[in-house]
C-alpha cells in the first residue's frame, strides 16, 4: 500500500497515478476485512475502486494527461506573447 502511494505521488503520467490510487483503495478494503470491518470494506471497495477512479479518469480526459504538460503550455503561450 505504501509502495502504491509513493508511486501515485511520484508518477508523472496522471493516468498511472490514478490507477495507483485505485490499487491503494483495493488493498485498503482487504485490510478492513482483516480488521473485522466488513461493512467498511464493502463501501471502500465500491466507492474507492470504481467510482473515484472513474471520476478521476473523466477529469483527466477533459483536461491534460501529463503532469508537466500545463508547464509546456505556459512556455508556448509566453513565447506567443
Amino acid at each position: 500500500m505504501i509502495a502504491a502511494a509513493i508511486y501515485a505521488v511520484v508518477q508523472k503520467d496522471l493516468l498511472y497515478a490514478v490507477i495507483a490510487t485505485g490499487i491503494i483503495s483495493l488493498i485498503l478494503s482487504i485490510v478492513f476485512y482483516i480488521l473485522q470491518a466488513p461493512d467498511v470494506a464493502l463501501t471502500e471497495a465500491a466507492i474507492g475502486v470504481a467510482l473515484t477512479t472513474i471520476v478521476f479518469i473523466i477529469t483527466i480526459r477533459n483536461t491534460v494527461r501529463m503532469e508537466d504538460e500545463s508547464d509546456k503550455n505556459k512556455n508556448i503561450k509566453s513565447a506567443a506573447k
Binding site: 467510482l51 472513474i54 471520476v55 473523466i58 477529469t59 480526459r61 477533459n62 483536461t63 491534460v64 494527461r65 501529463m66 504538460e69 500545463s70 503550455n73
Partner: peptide
C-alpha cells in the same frame, strides 16, 4: 454525479 461528469465535453482532447 456520474451522468453530470460524463456529459462534460472537453475543450480539446489531451491538452
Amino acid at each position: 454525479v456520474i451522468y453530470t461528469v460524463l456529459n462534460e465535453k472537453g475543450d480539446q482532447k489531451n491538452g
